[in-house]
């Protein structure tokens, strides 16, 4: 049994009368790629927001490498090694592509007072350049982030999420609104990051072919509950999953 990287224990989140997450429990092992699927409104993004601390869960606990991170401030959770990207790209439009990556260093180890006069050091710049090389937009490094195409912004988000050597990366629909060629490119990058650097991923995705192709294991969420779990083949043949998608939408 490999080591657990992220563990969620009976997590519950309510909005007024609506229970968005109902006693969710799941775990992700080191160097795994986990797919998280489910119909719209099933609570996938809410789960991400709870893990990163942007929403306070009503109940339950979250462990990152056996450290309880439940209820910590968002920036502290991110600093512990949880990176995240967004469904609709969120790059800083007036920072350059390079700065967009440099900004994602692990802030835990940096002196906040010295940051007033210190520039990014050589190691950080080297690493950021390597990441830009890795996703193939190195030649754009001095352009403002806002001038990139949508697909390039998606790639930039991915690169930026890898900058801090994260324990786990949460990707929210990394391929939504992207053309098929680029989808393949993005997926290749994710797989490569996983194989080469041993990065752990939790991925929300609606494109079934894509997510089935890349995941080691999957969780299926419907109306705030986990209704199925297992490797892609098992999930694909699960009648309940079929039901949730047909009945849900």
């Amino acid at each position: 049994m490999s080591k657990k990287c992220l563990e969620v224990e009976s997590l519950t989140k309510r909005f007024g009368g609506l229970t968005a997450l109902d006693e969710i429990s799941l775990h992700i092992n080191e160097a795994e790629i986990i797919g998280l699927i489910g119909p719209n409104g099933s609570g996938k993004t809410t789960l991400f927001n709870c893990v990163t601390g942007f929403l306070k869960p009503d109940n339950g606990r979250i462990f990152l490498r056996e450290v309880n991170i439940t209820g910590r401030e968002p920036h502290k959770i991110i600093q512990e090694g949880v990176s995240r990207t967004f469904q609709i790209t969120r790059v800083f439009p007036e920072l350059t592509v390079m700065e967009n990556i440099l900004i994602s260093i692990r802030h835990k180890e940096e002196s906040r007072i010295r940051s007033i006069y210190k520039k990014s050091n050589r190691d950080e710049i080297k690493k950021a350049s390597e990441l830009l090389e890795f996703i193939g937009i190195a030649e754009l490094s001095d352009q403002p982030g806002g001038e990139l195409s949508y697909g390039q912004q998606k790639l930039l988000q991915l690169a930026s999420s890898l900058m801090q050597d994260p324990s786990v990366v949460l990707l929210d629909e990394p391929t939504a609104g992207v053309n098929p060629t680029l989808i393949n490119k993005i997926m290749d990058r994710i797989r490569e990051a996983n194989e080469e650097f041993g990065t752990t991923f939790l991925i929300i995705e609606h494109n079934m072919d894509v997510i089935m192709g890349i995941s080691h294991r999957m969780y299926v969420l419907a109306t705030g509950k986990i209704i199925a779990e297992g490797n892609p083949e098992k999930v694909r043949s699960d009648p309940e999953v079929f039901e949730a998608y047909l009945g849900g939408d």
Binding site: P74, I78, Q79, R84, F92, I103, S115
Partner: peptide, 17 residues
């Protein structure tokens, strides 16, 4: 750089830690 990121998207900056 951090100041400018806060100005452009404060929640985004928090998401960068």
């Amino acid at each position: 750089m951090y100041f400018r990121s806060i100005k452009q998207d404060e929640d985004g900056a928090k998401h960068k830690g």
